[in-house]
């Protein structure tokens, strides 16, 4: 059993004819992912650089019925990305990974009720995607070489911070069962608690690294969940200890408002729940490593 992706994963890339879509579709294929189709409205039949055998369709419904794709990866520009998610839900995809950064929040608020009424799972938006090294599958933009198969699950609100921690894990001889970036936006499809639940249930995961950041209350919610439901060791790093209040730190979701969403509050809640909290990303990895050895 693996988390979210496995040998049955068949990926359709939305926006595959764009610069990012084409580049990362190739990297996914190189990692071993079955990239079976692309969708760009109006570009059916186009050739994708480096992936000559991957057919391009105008609509997601056609891509799914012709290729049996079951996972979508979205590289569509922000004004059109929510529509891409809605098209995927309608086409019945099991898993939708939305990489796009900068989607208007109202668009995501329109998506949420439709998503809740469906059987699709959304990861992101504004996320790096999912890597499952043991199954040789990645859906997203993370550099593949830094991963190694193993038994640590990573879950994070930030893309590059995930890479940072995966690199530390791999350097320290700890492979990953999966690395999941849930995204830095205020409205996202899958949250810390959902992924913690997957790792807790996964018999190939022994320990978890959680990477949070300032803003919102998801880390506090995660702490509560860990206290009640997670038996495996968890370590964490919270980014933004030095961030000034009331300023949006790049990610739309990363803002301290009043006394809410501070790094100190999140660290305290996680410690209270028995989580090993590192002062730096490296420390978070070392704390988990010591616990697992």
């Amino acid at each position: 059993m693996s988390v979210l992706l496995d040998a049955s994963t068949r990926v359709v890339v939305q926006g595959i004819t764009g610069r990012q879509g084409a580049f990362h579709a190739q990297r996914m294929a190189e990692a071993g992912t079955a990239v079976v189709a692309g969708v760009t409205p109006g570009r059916a039949g186009a050739a994708v650089d480096g992936l000559p055998s991957v057919p391009v369709f105008n609509t997601m419904a056609e891509a799914v019925s012709d290729t049996g794709a079951n996972v979508a990866c979205i590289f569509v520009p922000p004004p059109f990305a929510a529509d891409a998610i809605l098209e995927d839900i309608s086409a019945g995809l099991e898993l939708i990974v939305c990489i796009t950064e900068g989607i208007p929040v109202i668009d995501m608020l329109r998506v949420m009720p439709v998503l809740r009424g469906s059987s699709s799972r959304l990861i992101g938006p504004n996320c790096p995607g999912i890597a499952v090294p043991g199954a040789q599958v990645k859906v997203g933009i993370m550099p593949w070489e830094i991963h190694a198969p193993g038994r640590v699950g990573v879950v994070s609100r930030s893309g590059t911070l995930t890479y940072e921690v995966v690199q530390h894990l791999t350097d320290g001889g700890l492979g990953q069962s999966a690395a999941v970036g849930i995204g830095g936006d205020p409205i996202i499809g899958t949250r810390f608690t959902d992924v913690l639940e997957l790792y807790e249930q996964d018999d190939e995961t022994d320990g978890i690294v959680l990477l949070g950041e300032i803003g919102g209350g998801d880390e506090e919610q995660a702490a509560q969940f860990i206290h009640e439901r997670v038996t495996k060791p968890v370590s964490a790093f919270i980014a933004g200890k030095t961030a000034p209040p009331e300023r949006r730190m790049g990610h739309a979701g990363a803002i301290v408002s009043g006394s809410e969403g501070t790094a100190a509050g999140k660290e305290a809640a996680l410690r209270e729940a028995g989580v090993l909290v590192g002062d730096t990303p490296r420390e978070a990895v070392e704390l988990l490593a010591a616990q697992l050895s």
Partner: peptide, 9 residues
């Protein structure tokens, strides 16, 4: 953004 905050930290 996350790595940028972590870098400051």
């Amino acid at each position: 953004a996350g790595l940028a905050m972590a870098t400051m930290d």
